[in-house]
Each structure stands twice: as C-alpha cells, then as structure tokens.
Write a protein that binds this DNA or RNA. Structure first.
Lengths: 214, 214
DNA sequence: GGTGCAGTACTGGTCGGTCTAGTACTGTGG
DNA sequence: CCACAGTACTAGACCGACCAGTACTGCACC
C-alpha cells in the first residue's frame, strides 16, 4: 500500500498499525511485544509511543481500523437481495457471499482476538458487537422487511428472522472456527452447500407460503 | 465440596483445580499467576508442581474437568424431548432448558477462555468442540430422528436440523455474551421468550406439516 | 525421626515503558 | 539553491515489575 501525498509521520503510523494487526492477530495480545511490533514495522519503539500512548491504545486502533474496513461491505451484500429478480437465487447468492466473507481466515482471527480480550477492553467488544453484529442483523432485517412488503417473504419480525437466518447459516462453521482455530478450513464448496441448505430451510419457515404455527 | 474417604493428596489436588478454575476463568490464562492459584488454594507453589508438571497442564486439567462435568447433562436434556407428550410443549421446555443452561455465567466464561486459548492449545479447543458442541448436535439430532420416525417432525437431515435449532436459538445471545462479556446479562424471562419464538419458527420449518421448499 | 508441606527466597527471563544521544527529514527565509 | 531550525526518527541502554519454575529451610503431623 502506497499513498501519494502521505506525510512521513502518517506513513509510519500506518506501518505501525499494519504490523501490529498482523502481530496481534497471529500471536494474541499478550503474546505480542511492542519490540516485536516495532521491528516488524521497521520503526523504533520510541516512534510507536509517539503515535500511541500505550499498548492498549494501539490494540484498540487495530481493532477499530479492521472493523471500519468491514462494516461498509455488509450493507452492500444485503442490498443485493432487494434487487434480486428471483428470491431463491438472490437469497442463495447472499447467503453464499456472507458465508465466504465471514469465514475468511483473517476476519475469524480478528473475531477470536476480540472475544479473547472482551474482558480487558469491554468497550472494544461492545463496539464490535453493535457496529458489526447488530448492524448486520439490522440491515438484513430491513431487507427482509422490504421483501415482506412485496409479498416475497413473510417475516412478522424481520430482525428475528435475520437472526434465524444467520444463526442457521453460521452456527456450525463459526463455532468450529472459534474452537479449533480453523486449522483445517472447510472448502468453499462445502460452505456453499451448507449455505444452500440453510436457504432452503429458511424459505420453508419464512417463504410467502409459510404457514403460521398452530 | 467435601468428599469422605479422599486422601489428603487428592483433596489438595481438587483444591488446586478448583482454585485454578476460578482464577483462570476470571483473569484469563496469562492474567493468572501460579502464585495466585497457590494462595487461593491454600497450598504452596511446590505442591502445585508436584501434581501438575506445568501451567499449561494445569490449565488443560481445568478445562477437561469442567467439560466432563457438563457433557452428561446434555443427553439428559435431549432425552426429555423423546418422552414429551406434546411436541410443542416439549420443544419449548427443551429450548428453554438449553438456553438457560448454556447461557450460564460460568459456562460462558469458560467458553470464552477456551476460544481465547485455542491457538496456544489446539487440542483443548478441538476436544471441547467434539465432546461438547458436536455431541450436543448429535444427541439432539438423534432425538429429532426419532420424532421424525413417529411423524411428529419432518427432518430429512436431523443433524442439520439440530444445528438450525441451536443456531436460531443461540445466535444472538451467544454472540452478545462472547463479545460484551455478558456484562448486563439478559433476564431469564427474556431468554425464554426468545426460546419460544425460535421453537415456533422451527416448527414451521420442520413440523410434520412443513412443505418442502420451492 | 522421618515425610510432606508451607513459606520464601532465588534464578533467569520477558516485557512495558522511559530516557538519552545522535541522525534524517522537512519546510521556511534568505 | 542553500542554510538553518525544528521536528520526527533510530538504536539501544535502562528501569521496575512480574512471572514460571526451582531450591532450600523449618515446622507439623505421622
């Protein structure tokens, strides 16, 4: 990454955040030393402390930067759905896209990093939950709402429906990744098969012809 | 906890594991010192090292002990369902029970502890996943299979249905707990309401009258 | 009197953060 | 185009704290 009019200071800061991200993600918070980050960034420790008051602040910046980078992508994916011509196909596409995006190696590591440090830095975890997790549900929910308005779905509580959608879609792969560190990642084809199966069930429950229960 | 014919050595060992569990769970692996565990257990460091070769081993023992304690409970809960007289009521009962059991403060902390250290100790995470997570799915799955045989459900792939069940049930509360550290736990009533809503949707998708999709 | 343990001191190492002394860069006024 | 001043950066020593794991001493109970 090279940015044109970037001042030296800004460039260094970016180098630091990049190096820190890589280090934290692969060795954890406690497992990463400031020395290590400095070396990786090609920078002296002093410079790090010029830009970030302490390790915790740097860590926060790392998380926030990664989160911001991801947030915008979600709405885009969800938007695909409202424009889709065929419901089933659109849902499948969206499910597959969410699946492969969310099960990305880097993102998973980050996720585990946040969970691991949610105690130490509660604000970070809460931010991620609200700006990442809840936001994803909300945008998917509003999308379901529109489809319901057009009689393509039947979701009395779209937000809940969204949580059911993601829960069914991700429960197995996400838990596997969290607990096993995703050592032997599922193949993309595998994940997409799972996504398709979920869409099928979702449509039985929430499709236009779904019966209310009892 | 007091056990009668327990030798002093065994008693000490149990004290150590108990103290270590409390310490690890509340302060994390790196945040807990052996000194601290020794003090909490009313034991000298030397004694700890007599029973456990090193910190990592002790940690492993802590996790394994807690896991074992939990595993058996699952089958029992699932078994409730095969005996239930009314399907909806039985499912509701089971969903509520799983919900409140799994969302227990202590268990959640343990879960986060394992995720946080899945890198450092891969075997632990895998064990927990196989003996806890997958086992839960399997026993719920075989339960669904029986209900399908009796035409009370319609689950072509019972294991998948179980994952959908748990995913819908737990996606929101589990993620919230993982990321926010469950600082402001949901009320039991809240969780049970969520459980009931999930059961309703699950029955639309998998109840005996559910239509195939498309 | 011997054994096992508590208590504590010690070792070797790591790490966050600071300090210092000197070097490279940058932008302004001549 | 140059000189100079101010700022950012490097390299490395350094400090205090902490910690896993070991060694030793003395007490208390068998």
């Amino acid at each position: 990454m090279k940015v044109e009019g970037e001042t030296r200071s800004a460039r260094k800061e970016r180098d630091i955040v990049e190096a820190a991200t890589a280090a934290f993600v692969s060795r954890g918070y406690d497992g990463t030393s400031m020395e290590e980050i400095a070396t990786k960034a090609g920078v002296s420790k002093q410079t790090i402390y010029k830009h970030f008051t302490d390790k915790e602040t740097l860590f926060g910046e790392v998380i926030r930067a990664s989160a911001a980078q991801a947030t915008s992508a979600f709405d885009a994916v969800a938007a695909l759905l409202t424009e889709a011509e065929f419901l089933t196909g659109g849902l499948q596409q969206v499910a597959r896209l969410f699946m492969t995006t969310l099960m990305d190696e880097e993102r998973l590591r980050l996720r585990r990093l946040i969970i691991a440090n949610a105690d130490r830095m509660p604000q970070l975890g809460r931010d991620w939950y609200e700006k990442g997790f809840e936001r994803m549900l909300a945008s998917m929910g509003s999308c379901f709402q529109q489809l319901t308005d057009r009689n393509l779905l039947r979701t009395p509580d779209p937000y809940l429906a969204a949580s059911h959608f993601f829960g069914m879609l991700l429960w197995i792969p996400m838990n596997e990744a969290m607990f096993t560190g995703n050592k032997t990642p599922r193949s993309k084809a595998d994940l997409e098969r799972h996504a398709d199966a979920t869409v099928e069930t979702f449509l039985v429950a929430y499709g236009p012809q779904a019966q209310g229960s009892r």
